[in-house]
Amino acid sequence: MRGTSGNLSAVLHRDPLRLAVTASGLDKGELTYHDVVVVDGDGASVPGQPRPSAVPSAEAGLHARIARVTGAGAVVHVHAMAAVLAGEFWPDGVLLKDLEMLKGIGHSAHDEQVRVPVIPNGQDMALVGADFEAAHVPGVPAVIVARHGFYAWGDDLKQARWHVEIVEWLLRFTVALHRPGAPMDF
Rank of each mutant, 00 (worst) to 15 (best):
G3Y: 13
T4R: 10
S9Y: 07
R18I: 10
T22P: 09
A23I: 13
S24W: 13
G29C: 03
E30S: 11
E30F: 02
E30T: 10
L31C: 11
L31R: 00
Y33D: 08
H34C: 03
V36P: 01
D40G: 11
D40E: 06
A44G: 06
S45L: 11
Q49D: 13
P50H: 08
P52R: 02
A54N: 11
A54V: 02
V55Q: 15
A58K: 01
E59Y: 01
G61K: 01
G61N: 08
H63W: 05
H63V: 07
H63G: 06
A64E: 06
A67H: 06
A67E: 05
T70Y: 05
G71K: 00
A74E: 11
A80G: 12
A82Y: 04
L85C: 14
F89C: 06
W90R: 01
E100I: 03
K103R: 14
G104I: 07
G106L: 04
S108Y: 03
V114A: 13
R115F: 01
P120I: 00
N121I: 00
G122A: 04
M125S: 09
V128I: 13
D131I: 00
A134R: 08
G139K: 01
G139V: 05
V140T: 12
V143G: 03
V145I: 13
A146H: 05
R147I: 04
Y151H: 14
G154H: 04
L157Q: 08
K158L: 15
A160S: 05
R172N: 11
F173W: 13
A176W: 02
A176Y: 01
L177Y: 02
H178M: 01
R179N: 03
P180Y: 12
D185R: 12
